[in-house]
Amino acid sequence: MSQKAAPNSKLWRNMLLAFLVGGLICTIGQGVMSWMQALGLSREDGGAITSISLIFLSALLTGFNCYDNIAKHAGAGTLVPITGFANAMVSPALEFKREGFILGVGAKMFSIAGPVILYGSAASVVYGLILAIFG
């Protein structure tokens, strides 16, 4: 009964917005990437600078209280790219500064993004073990 009473999320509209905004963020990333490669940087270094640029942009928009207003409409379009990961670290750091810089900023920074780092690393260790033993 509670399922029936719930209003329908406008899935197609949300998907389109996520596609457009997410696509745009990746296009900006590709722009930086192509530029760096044109300057003669390696693929790894160019990729790192691309990530850093997008993270910087996301942190800035988070600080100016803009990222959440874009995300309200873009949904996964701002969640899935690396900018969403950055927002997940920057927003609790900013929000919990009143609880101090050690247990507020320092600890809360990882409250949403921590699991991503942990389980990403864990998966890479499992993969590494398989490679080291059988590879």
């Binding site: 596609f19 457009l20 949904g75 996964a76 899935v80 790219p81 990961f85 990403g120």
Partner: peptide
Amino acid sequence: GGLFCAVGQVLIDKTKLTPARILV
């Protein structure tokens, strides 16, 4: 890139997965 995000939107709207779980 847009496609990756559109798939994420389906996960947000059609499942009860929290953002942190989707990222993981």
